[in-house]
């Protein structure tokens, strides 16, 4: 088993990376995950495995990651700070590494209020910044979060983090991204981009400070099935900005699904050609995983480079 993350190899060799997302099921069968993994296998460099996204109980991201790995795709294990204290986090991370997982994406996690267990206690023993910092220390300084030595086989994760250019305060978003890079983030996946103008302003500030030289930024994109989905995201999902023009374009389309895919492909092409400092794209086809191969192909990102 290679010690190096394939995603890291693609990015470090300067190639435009493609990642996608697989949401684990709300049951115990791996069939669906395997199906999606096999379908995406040749089209993406790695897939994020979400960690109880929107605080809805799903199969564990590490267990689901093991199924994905078995299908020959590299998983990016998401780990939120909502559900585990520092003991559980480290234990799970050691386990994930032992199963061959090499990428971890550190995030705060959606508040449990949005999920199907709003009465749950949230943990937030440590925050995403501290998780990144401590994962780096585990790898580079061979230390547990407590400072105790890891005597052998320390996990050497490729550490990812998220950035949301659409949250506030806007200027501080770049500061916070830099802070995450200082903490040890090696790749960044952004929140879904619909407001391209704001994303470009964000990237301009990122480039001014040279942050793009220190971290691989993957731009998040999401194909939308209908104007209703777009309007829902516009009004009900926190930390998102969906411009009205986009909603209108889907509303007026004869085949909204086709239009949604076309918009997404246009966005990817635009970002790849015009937004400097972006090293890849992260496709979040929420509950629409089957369209990922087509998006990749039509965006001119197929075939994927062979590494490792």
């Amino acid at each position: 088993m290679s010690n190096l993350s394939k995603l890291q190899q693609v990015l470090d060799s300067g190639q435009f990376a493609v990642t996608a997302e697989i949401g684990p099921p709300k049951h115990s069968s791996p069939e669906g995950i395997r199906h999606h993994a096999e379908m995406m296998r040749d089209y993406v460099d790695a897939t994020n495995i979400t960690d109880n996204q929107t605080a809805i109980v799903r199969m564990s991201s590490i267990a689901a990651g093991a199924h994905v790995l078995g299908c020959g795709i590299e998983p990016i294990v998401q780990m939120t700070c909502r559900d585990r204290n520092r003991i559980a986090m480290q234990s799970d991370l050691l386990g994930a590494y032992s199963l061959g997982m090499r990428n971890v994406l550190c995030l705060s996690g959606d508040h449990q209020k949005f999920g199907n267990h709003p009465m749950a206690k949230n943990v937030y023993d440590i925050d995403s910044m501290q998780l990144i910092d401590n994962l780096r220390r585990m790898r580079d300084e061979k230390m547990f979060f407590s400072g105790d030595a890891i005597k052998e086989s320390e996990p050497q994760f490729f550490i990812g983090a998220v950035a949301n250019p659409f949250a506030d305060p806007f200027e501080f978003r770049v500061d916070r991204l830099e802070k995450k890079v200082n903490a040890g983030a090696q790749f960044i996946q952004t929140q879904c981009i619909f407001d391209m103008e704001r994303f470009e302003r964000f990237m301009e500030m990122v480039r001014e400070r040279g942050i793009d030289q220190r971290v691989h930024i993957l731009a998040g994109v999401t194909p939308m099935k209908s104007w209703k989905a777009a309007s829902y995201m516009q009004n009900n999902v926190s930390g998102m900005i969906v411009p009205n023009e986009l909603v209108e374009r889907l509303k007026n389309a004869e085949d909204p699904k086709r239009e949604g895919l076309d918009i997404c492909i246009e966005q990817i092409k635009y970002i790849k050609e015009n937004v400097k400092g972006v090293h890849g794209v992260h496709i979040m086809a929420i509950a629409w995983e089957e369209v990922v191969p087509e998006i990749v192909e039509k965006s001119g990102l197929y075939p994927r480079p062979k590494v490792g």
């Binding site: 705060s108 959606d110 508040h111 910044m129 949250a167 916070r176 802070k179 926190s238």
Partner: peptide, 21 residues
């Protein structure tokens, strides 16, 4: 902070308000 975050704000902060409410 609804998440007790020490290195905030999280991605849910918009228009000065918390994602929770």
């Amino acid at each position: 902070c609804s998440k007790s975050i020490l290195n905030g704000p999280c991605g849910g902060s918009q228009y000065g308000k918390c994602e929770v409410n």
